[in-house]
Amino acid sequence: MPWNFDPGRPIYSQLLEMIRLQIVSGRYAPGEKLPSVRDLASEAAVNPNTMQRALTELERTGLIYAQRTSGRYVTEDSDLIASAKRTIAREKTGVFLQEMKQLGYGPEQVTEIINTIDSSENADQNVSDSDAEKK
């Protein structure tokens, strides 16, 4: 199944993010060998040169490293993976908070909503309840 891309951003940077996500989420374990550029490009249905570029950029972050002849591997440095994971979480949360801001919710109110979702089985119901309270 080809991977999906946003139209307005370079494909290589989106590939980089997707592979990074697969690393921090453990689909590729620390120290595991990555598939070849060709195989990855074929899986994503993209140009191998684009995939190559994504991997080269990803190498620069240290999350993967190339071994001269045998291919590319995920780093064994679990601290590095954890910190990459935290960076992604912060970025995504930042985007989310931005969206909530557009809805008119500040960070405290967002935290409140998150808590009500956490403590309840019927999350949707609670979100609309707290909406009603605000009014």
């Binding site: 139209p7 307005g8 951003r9 370079p10 494909i11 290589y12 940077s13 684009t50």
Partner: peptide
């Protein structure tokens, strides 16, 4: 390059 176009214009080649 396609990715340069996407970077520069913030849109896909199709757009």
């Amino acid at each position: 390059a396609v990715d340069d176009i996407r970077n520069q214009y913030q849109k896909s080649v199709d757009e």
